[in-house]
Structures are given as C-alpha cells and as structure tokens.
Simulated scan of single mutants.
Amino acid sequence: MFTIEHEFDSTVVTLVDEGDDADGPHLNEDVTINAFADCVTLEQWDPRTDQVHKITLSPAQLRDLTAALNLPEGIYRSEIKGD
C-alpha cells in the first residue's frame, strides 16, 4: 500500500509494508519519499537505533535508479540527450 500527498514544495509518497501472507508478517517500517525540484529523499525509521535514516538522490541518480530497475545485470552509463 502507498499514499501520495502534494505539499507546498514537494510530493510525498509513503510506502507501507503490509507483509506477505505466504511468508508470514515480515513487516518493515514505512518508507517516506520526498520529491523536490532538486533532489529526492528517502527516509525510514530504524527501531533498533531509534533514528530516522535519510538518503538523498540527485535527479541524475534517480534517473539511473529508474532505468536500473528495468535492466539485466551489468554495468551501464546513462546518457543525457541534449535538445
């Protein structure tokens, strides 16, 4: 399950782990994704350390991640196509 909210300066997507009935309720903490104009952040609370961990991706890293999800194993370099 996930939610989408539009804030003043970002779009916020929250991913909720509902578990997998086949393997039992292996639930992870929610992941919150904030999409800003200049970066995307991913946040997840870690109950072991009682801290929120945050990862910041540049637009180029986000493009690479999106492409990587649809590619086979290997090493790739993305090209930015000019106008």
Rank of each mutant, 00 (worst) to 15 (best):
D64N: 08
R77K: 02
V40P: 00
S78Y: 09
D9H: 15
E5Y: 00
T11H: 10
S78M: 12
L57T: 06
D21A: 15
E43D: 09
S58L: 01
V52Y: 11
E5P: 02
D21R: 06
F8N: 11
D30F: 02
M1R: 14
T56A: 13
G19F: 02
A37N: 10
G74C: 06
T49R: 01
S10L: 07
D20K: 13
V31E: 01
R48I: 12
A60S: 07
L71P: 04
V40G: 02
R77N: 00
D83V: 12
K81L: 08
L65Q: 11
E7W: 02
D9P: 01
C39P: 04
G24V: 06
P59T: 14
A67Q: 13
T3F: 06
L69R: 07
M1F: 08
A68E: 11
D64A: 11
M1Y: 09
E5K: 05
L69Q: 03
G19A: 04
D20G: 06
L65S: 04
L42I: 15
A68W: 04
L62G: 07
Q51H: 00
N70I: 05
T56W: 10
D17W: 04
T14Q: 09
L27R: 13
I80A: 11
E73H: 12
T32I: 03
I75A: 15
G82Q: 13
D64Q: 10
T14D: 02
Y76M: 06
L62H: 06
P72E: 14
S10R: 15
D46M: 12
P59R: 09
R48S: 11
V52T: 13
V16E: 15
I4V: 14
R48Q: 07
V12G: 00
L65D: 07
Q61A: 04
D23V: 02
D23K: 03
V52Q: 13
K81A: 08
L27N: 03
D17L: 03
R77P: 01
S78H: 06
V52N: 13
N34M: 03
D23L: 11
F2P: 04
L15N: 00
L27D: 08
I4G: 01
I4A: 07
T41N: 08
I75K: 12
E43S: 10
G82N: 12
V40A: 08
A37L: 04
L57W: 09
T3Y: 10
S58E: 05
V16C: 07
T32E: 12
P25Q: 13
A22I: 15
I4N: 01
H53R: 12
E29L: 03
D30S: 01
Q61Y: 05
E18C: 04
F36G: 02
M1I: 04
T66A: 03
V12P: 01
T3N: 08
A68Y: 00
Q61D: 06
G82L: 14
E18I: 11
W45F: 11
D83I: 08
C39V: 14
F8R: 09
H53A: 01
L42N: 09
A22Y: 11
V16H: 10
I75V: 15
D21L: 14
L71S: 02
T49K: 02
D23G: 08
I55H: 01
E79K: 15
Q44K: 09
T49V: 08
T66I: 12
T49G: 02
T11I: 11
V12T: 09
Y76D: 05
